[in-house]
Amino acid sequence: MNRFALLTVFIVAILLTACKKEATTTEIDPNRKGSIMLYFDNRAGAQDLVLNSSSYQTALGQDLTVSKFNYYISNIKLVNKDGSTYTYPKDDSYFLIQESDASSQSIKLSNVPEGDYSDIVFTLGVDSIKSVSKIAERTGVLDPSAGAADMYWGWNSGYIFLKMEGSSSFAPLDSTTMQRPVEYHIGLFGLNGATNNLKTITIPFNGVYASVRQAKTNAPEAHFFVDVLKVVNGSSNIDFSVEPSVLSDKNSVNLANNYREMFSLDHVHNE
């Protein structure tokens, strides 16, 4: 009886470790595909960004109320801890994040090879190849007549990579609307030698791996902070009284160099 009980415990223990072992040794198979979720949490400094109501302070001590904050993410790549890189299918890799549309702030990447991923790399904006593509290849968020209608310059064929609009008491008064608007529409992909404001963003997961596994019911999640104040704060602090509006303009490089720093990792979690 005693011997039987011991044997039972032994067998159960063996089975348990075997199970565990199986889970760890055959864990990663790049032929199996899983998903990863990306979350873009737009913020203003340390606070959550709220459109139209909250007033935030810039580095120059000027107040800013934000009414619109949109940007394109494209050409997403995931860096594997083994050093290899997985490039998400290019045509499925264009996303327009809009603060006014919560559903646009999370991106599900599906059919991603299993792996432990350590970094994400993407383009902020719409790359030059897509920017000169045929009209029929511009669908969804890239359709100048629909999804991209608010993010496209027709007269200077090209996408607006990032659009931030709002108001500040430091901005000059618009006598028709009696508002003090600020507007930053940053685009330009370098056609004909013009300014190129495309930025490649790399966000390391700070030593945590996003483990993509087919068997997982919950995909790993990478949460990012995106600080709207970094559009006007940074290597060039923008003074609303001097530059309330920057559109298709050489000075747009200053804002693009600022906002390339606006992304940071909040956290990655696997369960």
Binding site: K134, I135, S145, G154, L191, N192
Partner: peptide, 18 residues
């Protein structure tokens, strides 16, 4: 356009309409 801002005829017509 006189300034050549549009580089593909298919991307032209959106302009005068809007």
């Amino acid at each position: 356009f006189w300034d050549g801002g549009v580089f593909n005829l298919d991307l032209f017509s959106i302009n005068p309409i809007q």
